[in-house]
Amino acid sequence: MKDIRYIFAIKEAMEEEMNRDENVFLIGEDVGLAGGSFGASKGLYEKFGPERIVDTPISELGFTSLAAGAASCGLRPIVEIMFMDFVTCCMDSIVNQIAKMRYMFGNQYTLPIVIRMPEGGGLNAGPQHSQCLEAWFAHVPGLKVVMAANPYDVKGLLKSAIRDDNPVIFIENKTLHAMKGSIPEEEYLVPLGKAEVKREGTDVTVVSASRLVNESLKAAETLSEAGVNVEVIDLMTIQPWDRETVYRSIGKTHRLVVAHEAVKQFGFGAEIVASVAEDILDELDAPIGRVGAPFVPASYSLEKYYVPNADDVKKAIMSTLERVF
């Protein structure tokens, strides 16, 4: 085992996959000479050269659709979008083209593309540099959506995403970039489409992804002192999500809280809750709890009150535990 930061785990995943498959290349703004805005591709330009680590002009729409064209012709692009907020500039590319090209053209084309981007607050970067938009993509048929909560997962999931033949929206988190964690020296993968029980418990199930998994684990830790046993599930892939693991857990705890950093309304948690209501409502002993940011743009000076944290998860758990049908 070795210790590694989240951001370097991303680098290792890309580097290993580029070594393994010469069709894999990285494209994006300042990914080459500068090694990436957050340092995710540090050293890769020196190793693989400008043909495979491709610096672009500031033109997200253009280079994302360019990746789609290249992927249709047999390459395996990794696209880096500097902040998730800027992905809004390439929505045609992702939503109308990439997500649909396979199905719409009668399964003739395959688009093995990974579009990586960091989301979230934590830098006090304000309304246009802090958003969490994963639910948008989860709502588009044809895309897989992956979110990683720690260095081990980010490496294993990214490698799986690069090998996957479907387009994958791969969502990192800015405040996790510096997070340290332990990973094996040898190669490993973390499969897409599988959730993981990150902490076992019997009283309530928290379903979460990305940074809020870590916050939920913190909340679970403090609540265990009060005798509350929280089970924390990390979805990891939010589209398609792992119903089996979630339903099994609810069958055990009979209480549910969903937690994400994105605004609460219409977040991915809403889909989990709707499915639970549709399929196993009778398993629930109490109304569900939801954690998400307030329904306003991210705040610069009030960020610490805006971004949900362990305390918010704790409150949601407590209020679910206090209620019954």
């Binding site: 500031i58 907020d85 800027f86 809004t88 500039c89 006090n124 970067a125 304000g126 309304p127 246009q128 540099h129 743009p297 705040s299 610069y300 000076s301 009030l302």
Partner: peptide
């Protein structure tokens, strides 16, 4: 990021705006 700021302290450097002088905003999006 203070209360009396042009954008009520909500937005900071990348979003300075003053409607009374026709300043339609800095921008976080290139």
């Amino acid at each position: 990021g203070k209360k009396d700021g042009y954008c009520l302290g909500r937005s900071g450097s990348m979003h300075l705006a003053d409607k009374s002088r026709g300043i339609m905003g800095a921008n976080g999006i290139v």
